[in-house]
């Protein structure tokens, strides 16, 4: 067990001794911040029936508090890079020389990914707290940390970001090429997932995807004009997310354990 703890610490050190992590953190916070800004600006505005609820409504708080899940792509990219940079710079050789039991290395990477994803989620939640709470109060509403499903959504963000880092590691192990991995992560979240989760008619498929399952976990069912979403129940969403996590973990292990490192 202490062996694994050392390996997890080594993986975290790999990430925190290069610059990428804080660049990604800044970008993720900016991205979430811009989304929050838009939600604040358009609160209560009705555009052709696509309405954003008013600042003083519980629905707006829900929408705004859930915006942090959009940082998933950045932790996923971080996960992709954590894995692929080992191949890009061939540090995988040194990694496997120190720890020839490759399965352990992969487990350590996955655990490190979960930890980093959770840390990003905490940063995002802090950002949300310092923007959403004043916005609600200035809009004449009342913010309560226990209201408007804030706790449930917070847990959803924590789980989602942690698991997206893990997805990234699995994807990185599968494709190995850094650029291909990052492009695949973006294509997956912004093209495939966004199509299947944005259009309620496609939710039959979309609710089974990680993005849809994450939405289900947070139980965001606000109608923004495209129709009422049809997510799984929250508990099922959580199960689907975990299943995806296990799938990606399995992919990462299967693709790495036996292959020759030349």
């Amino acid at each position: 067990m202490s062996l694994l703890a050392g390996l997890v610490k080594a993986e975290l050190r790999k990430l925190f001794t290069t610059r990428l992590w804080w660049v990604m953190l800044v970008v993720a916070l900016l991205f979430v911040g811009v989304g929050l800004g838009v939600l604040i600006a358009f609160a209560g505005v009705d555009q052709n029936g696509a309405a954003v609820p008013g600042l003083d409504t519980a629905q707006w708080t829900e929408l705004a508090w859930a915006s942090g899940s959009s940082a998933g792509i950045f932790v996923m990219i971080l996960g992709v890079v954590l894995m692929t940079s080992e191949f890009r710079y061939q540090t995988i050789t040194g990694t496997f020389l120190v720890t020839p039991r490759r399965g352990l290395v992969i487990i350590a990477k996955l655990v490190a990914g979960l930890i980093v994803g959770a840390l990003f989620a905490l940063a995002v939640l802090v950002l949300q707290a310092v923007t959403v709470i004043p916005a609600v109060m200035l809009g004449g509403g009342e913010f309560s940390l226990s209201g408007a499903r804030v706790p449930q959504i917070s847990i959803g963000i924590l789980a989602t970001l942690a698991l997206y880092a893990l997805f990234g590691i699995g994807l990185g192990a599968l494709v190995r090429n850094q650029v291909a991995g990052v492009v695949a992560a973006i294509a997956w979240t912004y093209v495939i997932e966004s199509i299947f989760t944005a259009i309620p008619a496609l939710h039959v498929v979309g609710k089974w995807l990680p993005g849809g399952a994450a939405q289900a976990l947070m139980s965001i069912d606000v109608n923004t004009g495209l129709g009422q979403p049809e997510w799984l129940p929250a508990w099922a969403g959580a199960l689907v997310l975990v299943a995806w996590g296990l799938l990606f973990a399995g992919v990462a292990t299967a693709t790495t354990v036996r292959r020759d490192i030349t």
Binding site: K9, A10, R13, T95, T99
Partner: peptide
């Protein structure tokens, strides 16, 4: 082919190996 992440210092590279 043993190689290094270009953005990492020599000391940190070795410390990571020590940790593992």
């Amino acid at each position: 082919a043993t190689s290094f992440h270009p953005g990492r210092t020599a000391r940190n590279h070795l410390r990571i190996l020590c940790t593992a």
